[in-house]
Design a protein around this nucleic acid. Structure first.
Lengths: 328, 328
DNA sequence: TCCGTCCGTCGAAGCGCTTCGATGATCAGG
DNA sequence: CCTGATCATCGAAGCGCTTCGACGGACGGA
């Protein structure tokens, strides 16, 4: 039976050993004879024992919890965030950790609070901005942490991200190879750029970095009619445009529509490449090549790095995941 | 300065009082003279003191954390979930609680674990299914909890939800009033129905409940081309169809397109109503009437109810939020 | 003036766990 | 057969907090 209030003493009594022995069996920090260990484990199972998290954290100075601070803000691409959350929780559980959910509006003070109260052993910060006020706090706090994204000065921090610069470049390259001389990047909503979100800036840089192409970046809202309008205006303003990279997940279907309406034949006289989930690129007609934002992998990597740091092992300062272009 | 390792004893020393006095000042559980209280608060601020969460939970048997179990599953409508999460975290913080993030794949065992380890004081379960294995566990556990959604037997549980049955009915009514005799509900992905998610079933029921209408429910995938195909097939199969309710957020834009392609003039010879966020209904052309799924309100209500339960106050067993049709 | 209250504060116990040092028991080597 | 090392286990201390009972002083009523 599961039990409320089953303590280590109960387990110890039932197994006929001292409480400390139970603790050692469970943590493996001292060698225990197999017979004793078996008896203890049986008692644990019988009683449905789970150590009291507070007591454990008090005694061991380890909470078994990591905090993730999520950006819940304008223009953020929600599905990707959920993938992220799911990946992070799954990986954390594999390391026997739980995840505390924080939102970016708690800001630096929120970080200070969870750190000072020893609620969590480590922190993962998502959607880091180029100048992010939380980063300085993080440095002072000295709590092990991992950032998803790169702030302007990432010296001494552990950062993980897709190499968005490369992703932008890959898209430009793809379009160039298809013979496009004039191309555009249809990006996230304006707000994302204004906020100076790292990934948006990097994609732009990468996209514009290829010499010999006329390229521009066009922010784009997330709603059907506005996507259509944006595309229409873009085509009107740039009649020579023959290549488009779309880094705005919900827009993709509508972009395809607008292109069709404008008489562009995608894959023939016009080329489109997507930065986003595979499904988005697969489930339009015609299917599009795409660069995946590997949210789950990023989340996993971030959590793993954090776990290594918690164990005092070292991790690379920056991990940039190479973008993969999938042709379809 | 923020401080690692600032304890209540440090605060007490600096304020020249006993540790217990500090505790009473902070909790307000005994009366303390204003002068003493001021001195204590000053010391707290100076030292950047935050109580050690583990110690507090051990001594007071209150963790200051609630768990939310999220459905991260096929066909779930992600943006709504994020609104939910954001609303819940914000409200929880207002009550000085933190939120532990769990995913539905942890299942009943996960609930048992967090309960037994006294990690959390309460639980919020989202996306409850008609027959949900977690519900039985929840009953046994005796941890205060609130469900978002209604299981088949909600006896003795606290459940909160939009009245989806009414929402379905409101949509059917709207279409009927516009003179539609044959209508359809374009719903979530098939998987959501198969899983017997409560809200999907209820919308269906409500939608089909109005007498004198030929009505049917059509599950619909979330991707552009499939949405188009589904709509096209539906129109072909039901030439008399003149009204459509769409309960599938990302599909709305594509539905509108497919209708336009089929020569339907929405608002004139054909009517569409949306169940979903305002933006989705506003940002298509023409703007559509819609029933809002008030994710943030639901989350807030759920958290508030949970807080009341934690305080031993009582709460209504079931809270059904009345759907509002917004005409545009 | 004395006693009973009440208020503000203190000290100590104890929440359930981990961890350190100590203790027997066992065993190999001389 | 004794010594020293090694192994398995135990007991006690202590993590930082809350809470209970106690206590001294102020104050009001008789």
């Amino acid at each position: 039976m599961a039990g409320r209030g089953v303590t280590i003493a109960d387990v110890a009594a039932r197994a006929g050993v001292a409480a400390s022995t139970v603790s050692y069996v469970l943590s493996g920090k001292r060698s225990i004879s197999p017979e004793t260990a078996d008896r203890v484990m049986a008692a644990v199972a019988d009683l449905g024992y789970h150590p009291h998290a507070g007591a454990r954290s008090l005694a061991s100075r380890r909470a078994g919890v990591v905090a993730m601070m999520f950006p819940i803000r304008d223009g953020m691409h929600l599905p990707v965030l959920m993938q992220f959350a799911a990946g992070a929780v799954a990986e954390a559980r594999r390391h026997d950790q739980d995840v505390l959910l924080m939102t970016a509006d708690e800001g630096p003070a929120g970080l200070a609070r969870v750190a000072a109260s020893a609620m969590v052993d480590g922190l993962i910060l998502m959607d880091v901005e180029v100048r992010d006020p939380r980063v300085e706090t993080l440095r002072r706090l000295g709590l092990p942490n991992v950032l998803i994204g790169f702030p302007a000065d990432s010296e001494g921090l552990t950062c993980v991200d897709l190499d968005f610069t490369a992703a932008g470049r890959v898209c430009a390259d793809y379009l160039a190879e298809r013979g496009c001389g004039e191309i555009a990047l249809l990006g996230a909503a304006e707000a994302v750029y204004e906020r100076r979100t790292g990934f948006a800036e990097r994609v732009r840089e990468g996209f514009l970095s290829r010499p010999g192409l006329r390229a521009e970046v066009q922010p784009c809202p997330n709603y059907p009619t506005e996507v259509q309008r944006t595309v229409k205006e873009l085509l009107a303003a740039r009649p020579e445009l023959t290549g488009l990279a779309v880094h705005n997940e919900p827009a993709v279907g509508h972009v395809m529509h607008a292109l069709a309406d404008a008489g562009k034949r995608v894959g023939e006289d016009f080329h489109v490449v997507v930065i986003g989930p595979d499904e988005v690129a697969e489930r339009v007609h015609p299917q599009l090549p795409s660069v995946l934002v590997p949210a789950e992998t990023l989340a996993q990597t971030a959590v793993r790095h954090l776990m290594r740091k918690l164990d005092g092992r070292d991790v690379p300062d920056s991990t940039l995941i190479e973008p993969q272009l999938t042709l379809r």
